[in-house]
Nucleic acid binder design. Structure first.
Lengths: 347, 347
DNA sequence: ATGAAAGCGCTAACAT
DNA sequence: ATGTTAGCGCTTTCAT
C-alpha cells in the first residue's frame, strides 16, 4: 500500500506510447482517438492523474490564487470567500488562504506568498497590504486589492463606490426627516472607512440645519458598543446612525436596543455591505449593498490581464451598489418596495 | 521588469558557492557561517526565495493541506477555518480551500484534490465525504473527517461527543422543568444530526411523562423556519426546543419571536456548536460548545501521524464539550455562573 | 563543509 | 500524430 505513486511514464508504458502522448492526452493536445483511449484506460487502471506540482514547474503556472485577509469575523468576508472561491474554480483556479491578523514580522508571510509561485494574489483588507502589494508587484506577481485600496502604491484595486454609497445613505436619512445624525467610522487607516466617512459628512454638509456627531467603532464589536453608547448618551443624541460597515451596524443596533431604543421607530440605523445576516428578522438592517459579483468579476479580469503582461497603469474600479432599505430605519415616502419589509431607495 | 525570476543557481553564482550550498543554507543544512552569510546576502540582493513548487517535486511534500467544506453559511465554519488556518500555519502548512456545495460530478474535484499532492486533507462536513475519503485513503493521502464522520469508510475522524452533548441538553431541559419538548434535526444523512437527535431522544425517554415532538430543519434557515412553525403551532406545542446546531437554533429563535414568543420566558431554545454570534445580545443562545481547539489539535496530530505512515486502524476522537447557558432558555437552579448572563451547566 | 551529478514528474520544442 | 530530447528549480546522495 505504501508503494510509490504511478507517474506519467508508467501510464505511457502500459499504453504503449511515449510520455509526451500521455501529456498531450491530459492537456488537450493532438492525440489520435485510438491512442487517447488506450492512454485513458491505462491511467484509469493505474489510478494516475497528472502531478500538478510537476506541471507547475514546467508551465510556471500553479493555478493557485492567494487570498490574503485579516479575519473572518466580519460577516462580509465569509461571503466574499465563498463567492470568490466559486468564481475562481470556474476559471480553473484554487484558492489558498492567508489569514493575517496583523503579523508583526511580515517576512515569513512574504516568503510563502511568493514562494508558492501563486498565479495571483488578492489582498482583501489584509493588514499591511501596502507592503505586500509592493513586493508582489515587484516580483511580477499579479495583485489586486479588494475593498480596501491603498492609492499610494501603484496597485490595481476593486471596491464599491464608497463615496456614492455613503452619500446616498446621508441623503436617505435626511429624506426620512432626520436632522441629528451620528456617524460611526472604522479603522482610521483604511480607505473604506476614510472614503465612506468623508463622503457621508460632505453629503450631509449640503443640508443646512443638519448636525453630525462622529465616533470610531474601530471595525470591532466592542469598539462599536462604546461608540454607540457615546453617541446615544449625548444630551442632543442623534436619532439616526450610519455605521461604515454592517459588522458595526449590527453591533450598534444591538447596543441601541440594550439602551431601550427601537431601531426603525425612535432611531434609524444603517450599515454598508449588506451582509447575509442583515436581512435576518433580528436585525432587518438597512444597508448599502456592495455589488459583490460584479466586483469579483472585475478582480478576476484584472488578475488575468496582469498574467498576460504587466499593466501600463494600475486599474482602480469603484463599482456602484444600491441602498437596500429594511426596518432598521425610518422609510422616506419614495422607497421602491422589492419584497416583504424590503425596498430599494434611489433618491 | 518582465525578466525571469532569479533561481538558486543565480544566488550560488553571486555568492561564489554551489547550488547545494544555497539549498542547505535555506533548509537548515550544514553550511559554514561565512558561506551562509554570503549566500543570504546574495539572496537578498537578488530578492530570491526558494521556489516551493520545485522543492515539492524533490521532497514530495507540498506543505499544503486541503480543506473540503460544503459552505460557510453555518457560522460555525468560518470559525473553524480561522482557527484551523492559524494552527496549520504554526505547523508550517497552508490551507487550500475546496468548497463543495454538492457537485454532481466529483471526478474533477478528485483530480484536483489528488493532483495538487496535498500533504493532507480535512473533510469538514463535505458533501460526498465518504467517496472522497475512500479515494484519498487509497492513494495514501492522509485524511481526517471533521464534525461529520462516516463510520462506514475506514477513515479517521474528529468530532464533539455528540451523544453526550445532546443528552446533556435533554437533562438540562428537564431540570429546568420542561415536559413538552421539541427537537429539530438536520440533514438525515449526517452523523452529527443522527447522533445528536438519537441521544437527545434516548435521554428524554428516561424521564416518564416527558413528550417529544420532532421535525427536520435540514440544516437550512428556511427549513428551520418551517420546522419551528410546525412544532409551535401544534395544539400541545412544546415549550422547549433543541436544534441540533446553532445555525438552526438561531433561525428557530427568530421564528419563535415572530410568532410572539419570548425565548427564555415562555419558550426555551438551545443549540449546538456555540458559534460566536450565539453570545450576541440579540440571541443569547444556550448552546453545547464544541471543544474546537482540542478538536483541531487532534486533527493535526492525526494528519501528522498518517504522514509518518499508514495508520493500523482509523482513529475516531469524540471530544467532550460543555453546555453554555444563556438567556434563551429557562435556567435550572444549579447553573454555575461564569459571566454576566452566562453560565455553565454540568448536571 | 562543500561540490558534482542525478533526478523528482512533467511539458515543450524539435524532429520525424 | 508521435517520439526524442532537453529542461523547469530544487534537493539529495555521494565523493572529496
Amino acid at each position: 500500500v505504501s508503494t510509490r505513486l504511478p507517474t506519467g511514464s508508467d501510464v505511457a508504458r502500459l499504453a504503449g506510447v511515449s510520455k509526451s502522448a500521455v501529456s498531450r492526452a491530459f492537456s488537450g493536445g493532438a492525440v489520435s482517438d485510438e491512442a487517447r483511449e488506450r492512454i485513458m484506460d491505462a491511467a484509469r487502471t493505474l489510478k494516475w492523474r497528472p502531478n500538478r506540482t510537476a506541471r507547475s514547474l514546467t508551465t510556471s503556472q500553479s493555478k493557485l490564487i492567494g487570498l490574503a485577509i485579516t479575519h473572518l469575523d466580519n460577516q462580509f468576508y465569509p461571503e466574499v470567500v465563498q463567492r470568490l472561491h466559486e468564481r475562481l474554480r470556474q476559471a480553473g483556479y484554487r484558492m489558498v488562504l492567508f489569514i493575517t491578523h496583523g503579523e508583526a514580522d511580515l517576512d515569513p508571510v512574504m516568503d510563502e506568498l511568493l514562494g508558492y509561485r501563486l498565479d495571483g494574489i488578492i489582498l482583501a483588507s489584509s493588514s499591511s497590504a501596502a507592503r505586500v502589494a509592493a513586493e508582489c508587484q515587484e516580483t511580477g506577481v499579479p495583485v489586486v486589492m479588494f475593498n480596501n485600496i491603498d492609492a499610494r502604491c501603484q496597485v490595481s484595486g476593486v471596491c464599491a463606490d464608497n463615496a456614492a454609497g455613503a452619500a446616498q445613505v446621508a441623503r436617505f436619512f435626511v429624506a426620512a426627516g432626520h436632522r441629528r445624525i451620528g456617524l460611526i467610522s472604522g479603522l482610521e487607516e483604511t480607505s473604506s472607512s476614510i472614503e465612506r466617512s468623508a463622503a457621508f459628512a460632505t453629503a450631509l454638509a449640503a443640508f443646512p440645519g443638519v448636525e453630525l456627531a462622529r465616533e470610531s467603532g474601530e471595525y470591532s464589536f466592542e469598539g462599536t458598543v462604546r461608540a454607540t453608547r457615546a453617541l446615544l448618551s449625548r444630551r442632543d443624541a442623534p436619532d439616526a446612525l450610519f455605521c461604515v460597515n454592517d459588522h458595526m451596524a449590527i453591533a450598534a443596533l444591538q447596543t441601541a436596543r440594550g439602551i431601550g431604543l427601537e431601531p426603525g421607530r425612535n432611531i434609524s440605523i444603517a450599515g454598508f455591505d449588506n451582509v447575509p445576516i442583515a436581512s435576518w428578522p433580528a436585525f432587518q438592517l438597512t444597508s448599502y449593498a456592495q455589488p459583490l459579483d460584479t466586483m469579483i468579476e472585475a478582480m478576476i479580469a484584472c488578475l488575468l490581464d496582469q498574467m498576460r503582461g504587466p499593466l501600463a497603469a494600475p486599474m482602480i474600479a469603484r463599482l456602484p451598489g444600491q441602498l437596500i432599505v429594511r426596518a432598521s430605519t425610518r422609510w422616506p415616502h419614495d422607497v421602491r418596495a422589492t419584497g416583504p419589509g424590503e425596498g430599494v431607495w434611489t433618491g
